[in-house]
Structure formats: structure tokens, C-alpha cells
Design a binder for these strands. Structure first.
Lengths: 247, 247
DNA sequence: CGCGATTTGTGCGTGCGTTCACAAGCGCCT
DNA sequence: AGGCGCTTGTGAACGCACGCACAAATCGCG
């Protein structure tokens, strides 16, 4: 379908060793959000010795509908074999290429407090194509400290150091009151992708992507469903641990 | 988005009296996901001395479209005054009630490693209607340790202790390899809401809600957009991001 | 007391995302 | 070689969500 060439600038064959044609169909946003999950499931399958996988099995491993998975994969080309399934290694390579994970991206972490400290040591980043290359904080007691082999610099040096360190993505793990100022500094340093853990809305220029992760919001959404479940019967009193099961 | 969709189709049969504030219209899932953000914005406005707020101003503070906000709020009743706006304190009370935040819910945290330790000390939970009431881990070196006034118990005691502690929500911050076993234990302990930080898919019975937060996935989504931006060889100004927030 | 300014609540068109269902294609077995 | 079973890829229908635009409602003011 949209297999056709993207039309803009696809002729530059000098790209870094791409084994596959570097075309960028505009994937639906929902599909992009699921590709990492597929990738994780594929790695898991590869580790357990599998060689190929059907859409049904992969969908189960990723927790989605099989038709949805097939449509998602079809958006990035035909990499399956009818009657057989998908070759896992090929699919991994393709998804990693589309997500831009062939080059390891540098992450700057701003705010090395409670949460930020944990993120700095989170192994899941390094194992999935990212590397924390810089730490910043405003607290003088934290500046100069070494965490996971990286020294914490003062946040005022962000604009100075971030470009040289090859920072591609900025992570904000500061209190909400400082988040906007940090975002402004990241933007000034040329960062165009921000992951925000602070519970606040960030204003950024066009062209800068912001994703927000708010732990309390997740709990509140769960709370709603919990609340609804406990009130399902109408006048059911909350109390005993035994929950009324929905038939 | 919605995973483990339970068969909770049980409608509130007699919808006659809309005057009772304890009624639960089936809110669209997208609306539920935004209500916590509105709540946060409302608290922020209340702290700065505001008394009422227009949909336009509140929408700006929450980072959404004003029409969307009005429609969301209309789903939970008419709590605004035309020509004036919304009374902040009333709206806060109403949203907190709908989300079930009037009662403080207990949270059990399983996995007190790198990330779990940070979550145990995260102040954002307590300030928004939740309280960490129990910590569990499988590592003997961590069991018995005290974090934030709570003693870490061995995970095998989860089923025994969780109900007594009033646990309403379970948070999994273990490695992926242990997550499914922990989820099974939480379910066995009567927990019907789980927040999963482990990068894996959880299988749970119907009626149990699972929300997943995967930090690496967020980065990978950002990586895709970064990749696409850097490959836009032409003069194409990328601005179609899902969350562009001009100001 | 009536009018205009302002803001809510919502009907409707549009686009996206999901799901079903099936034709097309591939390998294997006879 | 040919048929058969299995799986992919996709057309089409459906439902949800979003945003526009406007009628209804309320307050303040002359």
C-alpha cells in the first residue's frame, strides 16, 4: 500500500549501512506506540530459540489482537511469508531500523533525586538502544557526585555540555516547579525529544516532541476502575476483602 | 490502550435519578485518562488563589482542547455556570469522587530494587490520594530493611499480609522474569488493579485491570520521531507531532 | 427590567483506529 | 505435479474520539 517510496530524500544511499531500504511511511501513531512492544516480544522469542513466528503467536506474546499486529507490520512492508509466518531476526532488524534504534541514542537525565537516581541506574535503557550520557541537577549537594560512572553536573551547564555529549533525548525527573525551566534549557541545547516525568504540562516550540509519564495518574486511572467495580452492584457496601466478582 | 478488558458491562440499571451525585455514567476511557490531568490543573489553580475557571483557561493548564475538556466534564454532569465557568472547589470534589479518590487507597509495592526503591519514596503518591502500605521483595538482602518507615517483607508473605494491610492496588517493580509470578500472587491476595513496570505482558483473570508503564518504550517512541526528523532531508517542517503545545 | 457579553453544553461532520472476514500466496504431502 | 492446509495481507464495516460551530443559559450593567 504505502510501500511506495517516500518521495523525499530517499535517494541518499550514503546512510549508515542500512541493509534495508530506508523508506519512511508515515506510520499511524498507534502503530508506532506498539512497535516497541512487538520488538520486546520478538527478542524474547529469539532468546527461547524460535526462528519464525506466526502473527497469532506474536500477537499473544505482545498482548494484542492478531489482526492488529498484521496490519501494523504491513505498514512497514511485507516481511512475512504466507503459510509460515515472520522470520524473527529479519523482523527485529526491520523494526529496529524503523524506530531508529540502529544508532545508539544518548540520553541526558535532568534531576537526580528520588526518581532520577533510579532512572540513571535503570538497566532497561542500555539494553534497548539507549545510553545515559549526562546527568544534571540543581542541588549543590548532588553536583559532583558520581552515579553509575557519570558525574552529576550543575543544570546551568546543560546548554554547554549537552550538545557535545551527543544528547538526543532529554529526560526530566525534577519537581514540577523546575520542569518548564529545564525544558527550556533542553530546547536551547538543541534537544527535540523530551520525556517528562514531572506532573505538569510543558510548553515547547513546534518540532519538539514531548511524552509525559505520570505515575500518579496511572494510579488514579486504576482507582477509577476499582471504584467502579466496588460500586457495580449499586448499593454494595465496601468493606470485606472479598470482592464481588463480575459474574 | 485498554488491556484486560473485563466484562464489566453491568450498567447502572435505573438511571432515573440523575440528582444523586453517586451515579456512574460509563465514562469513555479517553475521558477517564484525562480526568487526573484536569484534577492536577485544578489543584494548581486553587493554590494560586483562583476561585472559578473557564474551560478555556483550564484546558490550557491541562494541555488539551477546550471543547474536549467541556465534553469530558459534561459526561459527569453539569457543574459549570454559563457565562462564568466552573467553580474550582466543586469541580475538584466531583472529579475526586468520580475517580474514587475520596477514600485513600492502599498501595502494595513489590520489588524494592532500583526503581521500586524510588517509587517507595515518591512523594507524588501520598499527595494524590494514595498511600504505600506494604513493601515486598524476594531478595533476602532487602527483606527486613526499612524504607520510608515501612519494613520490606518477603514476597512469599504477600498473600498473607496484603489483605490485612488494606491493599487496593499492586505495583510491580520487579524484573520481567518475576513479574508474572508476582501478578499471580497479587490476584490471589484479592488485588484487582495492578500497575506493571516490568517489560512484559501479564496474564490476569477477567475483572483484574492492568496498566503498564515501560520506560524504554517511551524512549523508543521518541526515538522514532527523532529518527524521522533527522531523515527529513527536504525543507519539510515537522510539526505534526501528537503533542505539539504552542503557546 | 432588558440587553449584550460571555461561557457552557452539545449536535454533527470527519478522521483515525480496530475488528471481521476473506482472497491471495506459500509450503508440504501425496 | 497438483491439491490441500495454513498464514499473511487487506478491503470494508464499524465504533470511538476529536474538533468545529452554535444554540442555550447566565451574569453584569445601564
Amino acid at each position: 500500500m504505502s510501500q511506495a517510496t517516500s518521495g523525499v530524500g530517499s535517494g541518499t544511499g550514503a546512510a549508515a549501512g542500512a541493509t534495508t531500504p530506508s523508506d519512511f511511511p508515515d506510520l499511524p501513531e498507534a502503530t508506532v506506540a506498539r512497535l516497541p512492544e512487538y520488538l520486546r516480544a520478538l527478542h524474547q522469542l529469539a532468546d527461547t530459540g524460535h526462528d519464525t513466528v506466526s502473527s497469532e503467536a506474536l500477537a499473544a506474546a505482545a498482548g494484542v489482537n492478531s489482526a492488529k499486529l498484521r496490519k501494523d507490520l504491513s505498514h512497514l512492508g511485507s516481511y512475512g511469508t504466507r503459510g509460515v509466518g515472520y522470520e524473527i531476526s529479519l523482523l527485529i532488524a526491520q523494526i529496529e531500523h524503523v524506530l531508529g534504534l540502529t544508532q545508539r541514542r544518548g540520553v541526558a537525565l535532568v534531576g537526580v533525586g528520588n526518581l532520577g537516581h533510579a532512572l540513571a541506574g535503570y538497566a532497561g535503557f542500555g539494553s534497548r538502544g539507549f545510553r545515559v550520557v549526562a546527568l544534571f541537577d540543581a542541588d549543590p549537594r548532588l553536583v559532583g557526585k558520581t552515579i553509575n560512572g557519570l558525574v552529576v553536573r550543575h543544570v546551568d551547564l546543560l546548554v554547554e555540555f549537552a550538545p557535545a555529549e551527543g544528547v538526543a533525548i532529554g529526560v526530566i525527573a525534577t519537581p514540577a516547579s523546575a520542569a518548564q525551566a529545564v525544558a527550556d534549557m533542553l530546547v536551547a541545547a538543541g534537544v527535540t525529544s523530551i520525556l517528562n516525568f514531572a506532573p505538569c504540562v510543558l510548553a515547547v516550540p513546534d518540532g519538539v516532541d514531548v511524552r509525559k509519564v505520570d505515575l500518579a495518574i496511572e494510579l488514579q486511572i486504576l482507582s477509577f476502575h476499582e471504584h467502579r467495580k466496588s460500586a457495580a452492584g449499586g448499593a454494595v457496601a465496601v468493606g470485606a476483602g472479598a470482592e464481588a466478582l463480575p459474574r
